[in-house]
Computed example of a mutant assay.
Amino acid sequence: MLKVRSLDASGGGVVAIDNKIEQAMDLVKSHLMYAVREEVEVLKEQIKELVERNSLLERENALLKSLSNNDQLSQLPAQQANPGSTSQQQAMIAQPPQPTQPPQQPNVSSA
């Protein structure tokens, strides 16, 4: 602790400063603990969501494996070497093709 010489003989000024420093440190500690608790709660929620998402993806993976044939399963090791193509193919399988619409003509008035 920082000690400051007091002008009075009793040393009361030093004690008062020490008490204020201690109170300030306690306040900082309580604010820090509150912020850490909040962050822990946010992280717990994110972990919970990620665990749920992982579980869903594992079930989806098991279902897709059960619905696929041996030829498709034999292609998996080759696709795992190139993860970009696998995720694109999974996205294509997961989403049915959307009907295409002709591009809209700009609304231009003739003068």
Rank of each mutant, 00 (worst) to 15 (best):
L67I: 07
Q80R: 06
E49Y: 07
S55C: 08
E39C: 07
K3L: 12
E45L: 08
Q72S: 11
R59D: 14
I93T: 15
V108R: 02
S10M: 01
K65D: 06
M92R: 13
P102R: 12
Q79P: 00
L27F: 09
T86H: 03
R5V: 07
D18F: 03
I21L: 13
Q72K: 05
L76M: 15
V40C: 07
V36R: 03
P102A: 09
S6P: 00
I47A: 12
S66A: 14
K48T: 09
L7V: 11
S68V: 02
Q104S: 09
Q72E: 12
Q90S: 13
A16N: 10
L43Q: 10
A35G: 04
K20Y: 13
K65F: 12
D8Y: 00
G84Y: 01
L67F: 08
S10E: 02
K44Y: 01
E39N: 12
L73D: 04
V4E: 11
I17E: 01
S68A: 15
P83Q: 01
Q46S: 13
D26Y: 01
D71I: 06
Q23K: 05
S87A: 04
E60P: 03
S10K: 01
R5L: 15
N61F: 13
A62C: 06
S30F: 10
S110Q: 07
P103M: 03
Q79E: 14
E38R: 05
G84F: 00
T100F: 11
A78E: 02
N82D: 05
S109N: 10
K65V: 11
I47R: 05
A94N: 14
L27A: 11
D71Q: 11
M25E: 15
K3H: 12
N82R: 06
Q80K: 08
Q95N: 12
Y34Q: 13
D71F: 07
E45C: 04
V14M: 13
P106S: 04
A16C: 07
V42P: 00
S68Y: 01
A78Q: 03
K65A: 11
E39F: 02
N107M: 10
Q23V: 05
Q90Y: 07
V28N: 10
E22T: 14
R37T: 11
P97T: 06
L56V: 13
S109P: 05
Q79W: 02
G11P: 00
Y34S: 14
D71T: 10
E39V: 04
S74C: 08
M33P: 00
I93E: 01
M1K: 10
S6N: 03
S85K: 15
A9H: 00
P106C: 03
E22V: 10
N54Y: 15
D8V: 00
R53C: 05
S110V: 10
E60D: 14
V36N: 04
A24P: 02
S109V: 09
P106E: 04
S109C: 09
V14T: 15
V15F: 03
L43I: 11
Q88M: 15
S6D: 03
I21F: 07
L27H: 10
K44W: 01
A78G: 04
L73K: 13
V4D: 08
Q46Y: 15
L7W: 02
P97A: 09
M33K: 14
E52G: 07
M25Y: 04
K29Y: 14
R53V: 05
